[in-house]
Design a protein around this nucleic acid. Structure first.
Lengths: 244, 244
DNA sequence: TGACACACAAAGGTAGTATCTATTTGGTGA
DNA sequence: TCACCAAATAGATACTACCTTTGTGTGTCA
């Protein structure tokens, strides 16, 4: 441990300086592909990856298998590992979403995700109105009240946290497992909207009203009203995106 | 099969009786997990997988790495490979969708997908009205006319094919790569709806009208009208699902 | 010029071994 | 009897060496 680490490169059969080397390599190659540094059609070889990252064949293979399963690459004998065209990527894989948000093509990913939110959240609200548990309905109502309070007080960080909780709770309680899987992405979009100020963000009274309307409609089991109210929340976003 | 292949198990170092052994193992284990045969919390070991499928550790590892990347399992030293709780699965991975549709829990997957369609397609139609190319607009219009003709003629198979092409073209031309990735799933839902008669399916005049309305709105660049018309197409589905 | 054979590169797969770590088990003292 | 520390252990993680399979390219011969 202490001194003998003269050769930190990690090829000294020590299993890797940091744990989970395979993940580090996956991350590195994934980011390179997602960012466009390795454009579609680029060719890699296991040999090359081994050398570049100082790893064994096994780890290089594992990494490529995962990338292949995400449809980021395909591999053919005698040819090597080829980066797929973008059209075929599994763009719903959270890892890929993360990599793309970290790249300088972030904007495309954000607008895709935002449009997805616009599509999904109203239906999720309607689903929640039909299927949420009593506890979930109560929690939504209390979160809407929190939002009002924090918004009026101008506590943006706490407001953001509550906002994320509100939207994620809707996705959870709507009873659609596929919507639930979008939780992390919605949280990411909301966070970035506040932090980076990509969209003008100042809790407008209309938005606060609309959150309360959603909560009330869900509490009352009125699916149509919940859907409409959620549409109102997202209208602001739609306008900011130049849609509508 | 017959006899000569005394050792069919494929461990005779021949690289596997059929090509892509790793895929066969992945498929087998994936299906077992997706179907609930291996419920969350079940524990596997690489050793066990090797034995069960007569493969080497490398292949077993590759398989598990892919399942891990789909969040179907996680693995810990000394414990083994544990099936994740459903909540955490990457339910948007096309492989997983396929496995679930093949299991006897098919219904849950279908209703999730259908609700997703209801959410996404209207927004996709609006996007297409804004961003589709001239060729795409023309093609949509001609597909709507085909649908009218085939529907009136009662040619259900051809109608299905055109219907799939219509909906997929919308997803392609809306300019949102994430929506595009849903293509295969939409096709799957439409196919099953016709084939298995899960939903009453007889091209109703209202549906044919609505398809033409969508095409016309997209051709004319009217996003709001396209969104509304697509809602009408999906209303039939909503009613059949007991939503709304 | 065209068809065929052969060499080669790179993935796919097997086998054996070493290391790391969380759990289990067992033993010791209070 | 119980709490706590030490040793054994199971199983993932990783490395190495080797064999098999299969596209690709290249060169030879008619």
């Amino acid at each position: 441990m202490s001194t003998a680490t003269a050769q930190d490169a990690g090829n000294a059969h020590d299993g890797g300086a940091s744990p989970a080397m395979t993940e580090r390599v996956l991350e590195a190659v994934g980011v390179a592909i997602a960012s466009g540094e390795l454009p579609p059609g680029s060719r890699l070889t296991l040999e090359g990856i081994q050398q570049e990252y100082g790893i064994s064949r096994t780890v290089a293979r594992d990494t490529m298998k995962v990338l292949e399963s995400m449809n980021l690459v395909y591999s053919r004998r005698r040819v090597g590992i080829v980066v797929q065209e973008r059209r075929l990527w599994n763009v719903f894989d959270p890892k890929l979403v993360r990599w793309r948000l970290a790249s300088d093509r972030r904007e495309i990913q954000y607008s895709s995700l935002t449009e997805l939110r616009i599509a999904v959240e109203p239906i999720a609200a309607a689903g929640a109105a039909r299927r949420a548990s009593a506890a979930e309905r109560a929690k939504l109502t209390s979160l809407a009240a929190d939002l009002r309070r924090l918004g009026d007080a101008g506590e943006l960080e706490a407001f953001l946290a509550a906002d994320i909780e509100f939207h994620c709770l809707l996705l959870q309680s709507c009873g659609n497992e596929m919507f639930l899987a979008l939780e992390g992405m919605v949280a990411e979009v909301l966070t970035s909207r506040t932090r980076q100020g990509l969209m003008p963000f100042k809790p407008r009274p209309e938005a606060l009203d609309a959150h309360e309307d959603v909560a009330a409609a869900v509490a009352g089991g009125d699916a149509t009203a919940a859907e409409t109210a959620m549409h109102h929340i997202l209208d602001e976003v739609r306008n900011a995106m130049g849609l509508h």
